[in-house]
């Protein structure tokens, strides 16, 4: 994998609410190479969707990006390009809606598969027409050419061609998801951000869609970010993974590294709480407590109140990001000590 495609540096996205700020994404850094798949996992409300949407700045109007955040896509810093310093909140940058430069990137270079494709299509337009519209918006082609391309895309994702002129309600859930993937591929993007692409689907359909996505990703050499709560989907699909907890990226590394040489207590706990159909049946371990309120996150490490390894320092100081092995990062005070000690049991 040759070139770095996406370099996210210290990205912080905070939401302004009446009572103050919600620190949804704080100081998140990762890189993604061309043709690479990254899984972004975490529980609901941990900021994984905000991170994904923050890349293309498709965020609510009360979202502000902190000064110093960088999202460098193919050499271009999106934060610099389409945000301006906020007058109301010093230290933050405001997103300029419908920024003409940004719109050139959206869908053309970076496309998305939205959570719940069931509702992502407009119910009063034919599915094919919606994909054709996306093509015509960005490329100077005739409608016939666009239609030809949709036919080819349908073939690629495995929907019969005669379904192009159907309305969304005539599609099953799995087919809508496939059409969504076709739409995401329509303009040959460099990066696809898939937000919970299979969460609403049954296992058999999920398996087929994931297989399809992996194949298309390989054939077209597209980079992909899969946002999901399901670590088993990541294990199956991703080259590398990033684990999020309460707005922080707690562990980043290759999928193998993170699963087999776990370096953060949260990931270990997650694996111990996850049932599997493989191996011996073991009693699962729940993580005590619940995730913190992001409007009022704990001082120090955000996982410390639930962490079995926490010491005094964890409650006081925010941990640094430690590189425990090449390309394997953990945001923990004791990453070095715990590296190699964690996860063994869960992975036997």
């Amino acid at each position: 994998m040759a070139k770095v495609l996406l370099d996210v540096k210290n990205l912080s996205v905070h939401y302004k609410i009446q009572a103050g700020w919600v620190y949804a994404v704080d100081d998140v850094s990762f890189t993604l190479h061309r043709g690479e798949t990254m899984g972004l996992v975490g529980e609901s409300g941990c900021g994984k969707t905000t991170t994904g949407y923050g890349i293309t700045q498709l965020l609510a109007s009360n979202a502000y990006i902190k000064e110093g955040s960088k999202v460098i896509f193919d050499g271009k810093d999106f934060v610099e390009m389409s945000t301006v310093p906020s007058k109301k909140f010093p230290g933050y940058r405001r997103i300029v809606e419908y920024h003409p430069e940004m719109r050139k990137y959206r869908w053309k270079r970076i496309s998305m598969i939205f959570q719940g494709a069931m509702n992502a299509f407009n119910p009063v337009f034919k599915v094919g027409d919606q994909i054709i519209e996306a093509i015509l918006t960005h490329e100077n082609v005739t409608e016939e050419e666009a239609r030809k391309r949709v036919e080819r895309l349908y073939e690629l994702v495995g929907i019969p061609k005669d379904r192009i002129d159907n309305y969304p309600h005539e599609y099953s859930g799995g087919m809508k998801q496939r059409a969504m993937i076709a739409m995401a591929l329509a303009l040959n993007p460099d990066l696809i951000i898939a937000d919970e692409p299979t969460t609403a689907l049954d296992v058999v359909t999920q398996d087929k869609i994931l297989g399809e996505m992996a194949r298309l990703q390989k054939e077209n050499n597209v980079a992909m970010i899969i946002i999901t709560h399901d670590v088993s989907v990541v294990a199956e699909m991703a080259h590398k993974m990033a684990v999020m907890y309460a707005g922080h990226l707690v562990e980043v590394g290759s999928t193998r590294q993170v699963f087999k040489e776990t370096a953060h207590p949260y990931m270990e706990a997650l694996l111990k709480a996850f049932p599997s159909i493989k191996g011996e049946k073991k009693r699962l371990k729940a993580i005590p407590g619940s995730p913190p309120d992001l409007a009022n996150p704990p001082k120090g490490c955000r996982f410390a109140p639930r962490c079995p390894y926490a010491k005094d320092i964890c409650l006081e100081e925010e941990p640094p990001v430690v590189e425990v092995a090449p390309g394997h990062f953990s945001k923990c005070h004791f990453a070095e000590e715990l590296y190699g000690e964690l996860g063994g049991e869960a992975n036997e």
Binding site: V203, Q206, D207, S232, A235, E236, T255, R256, F274, K278
Partner: peptide, 16 residues
């Protein structure tokens, strides 16, 4: 059962 994803990157599973 073959469609169920397994939380283990080494697991190779057959196609449905």
């Amino acid at each position: 059962i073959s469609a169920v994803p397994v939380p283990d990157p080494d697991h190779k599973h057959g196609r449905v």
